[in-house]
Design a protein around this nucleic acid. Sequence first.
DNA 1: GCAGATCACATACAGTCAGTCTGTATTGGA
DNA 2: TCCAATACAGACTGACTGTATGTGATCTGC
Lengths: 179, 179
Amino acid sequence: MRQALIDAARSLFIQRGYAETATPDIVALAGVTRGALYHHFEDKRALFRAVIEREAADVAAAIEAGTSPVMNPREAIVAGSRGYFDAMSKPGRARLLLLDGPAVLGADTMRAIDTETAEASLKDGLHVLLSGGRNGALADMLAVLLSAAFDRAALAIETGADRHQCEEAIAALIDGLAA
Amino acid sequence: MRQALIDAARSLFIQRGYAETATPDIVALAGVTRGALYHHFEDKRALFRAVIEREAADVAAAIEAGTSPVMNPREAIVAGSRGYFDAMSKPGRARLLLLDGPAVLGADTMRAIDTETAEASLKDGLHVLLSGGRNGALADMLAVLLSAAFDRAALAIETGADRHQCEEAIAALIDGLAA
DNA sequence: GCAGATCACATACAGTCAGTCTGTATTGGA
DNA sequence: TCCAATACAGACTGACTGTATGTGATCTGC
C-alpha cells in the first residue's frame, strides 16, 4: 500500500510536477482514499520525499554497478558518468531529482539525500586524479561543481541534447584537470 | 503599483519560497488588494515571472559591467565570474533564480529568460579560447555545463561555502580547457 | 478463546488559497 | 461635458491540504 502510493505519486509527479499534482488524484490512481495517504505519510511533502529517496537510491545503485575498484581514476569517472546518464535517462527522473526536488525539499536536503551518489564517487576519483600536489579542498569543490555539470547535462539530454556530445564535454573537463 | 507588487512579491518569495507565499500576503505588503494584482498580472506565476525577469536582468547587467571587449578570453571569463558571483551574492537571488525559478517556470523558460546572461558571454569566451582546432559544438556544450557549475557555486556560496575557493575551482576548470 | 488495544484505513470537516466576476472611481480625450 | 477606458476594490466559487473522528480487522496478553 505504501508502495502503491509511492508508485502512483511518482507517476503523477513526473507527469504534472509536484505543485500541480493533487492528493485526491494520487489516491484515486492508487485505488485508496486520502485517509490511507495521511496514515502512511505525515503530509504531501513526506510522500514526495519518499519518491525522491527511492529514485536517488536507484541512481546511486546504477552508478555503483557500472564502476569497479580496479579502474584508474579517469576510467572510473567516465564509467560513472555513463552509469549516471543511463540511470537519469529514465523518463521523469531528471525533473524529479533536479527540478522539483531542490525546490520542494531544499537544496541542502537534496544534498543530504544524494550522499553516496554521483558526487561522493566523483570526489574520490578527483582526489586520486589531482594527487599531484594540489590540495584536497580544491578536489572537493571541483566535485561539487562537476556534479552540477553532470546534472545539467542530464537535464539537457532529457530535453533533446545529444548524449554523446555531453559525454565528450564532460571528458574534456576531466582531462583538462588531469593535465 | 506594478513595481510595488513586484517588490513585495520578491521580498516574500525569497523569504518563504513561491509555493508558501500567498497572494493575500503579497498584496497586504504592497498595500493594495488582490484585485490590483490580477489587474496587472494574469496570475501568480506571471507575477513570479516578472520578479525573475527583473532579477535576471540585474545579474546580466552586473556581468556586462564587469567585463570589457579588450580582455583576452581567460581574463573575460574570470572577470565575468567575478561579476556573476557579486550579483548572485544579493540575498535570496540564488533561491529565486536557481531553485524556485526552474521548478515554477520550467528549465526551458528559465533558459530563455537567461539569454544574454552568463551563459551567452561564456559561450563567446569559450569559442575564442578553444579556437585551436576543436569544434564549436563542443564549446557550446561546455558553456552549458560550466554555466551549471557557476550556478551551483553561487548556491554553495549562499549556504556558506568559501567564495575564493569557488573561484579557484572555476579557474582550474577553465585553465584545463585552455591547455 | 476472549477482552482490549493497536493498526490500517475510510469519511466528514474546517480553513485557506487561486482565479473570476462584478462594481466603482478616476482619468484622458472628443 | 460626456464617454470610454483604465485602475483598482470586494465578493464569490471551486478546489485542495491537513485534521479529527469513525470503523473493521488483527494481534496480544491472560
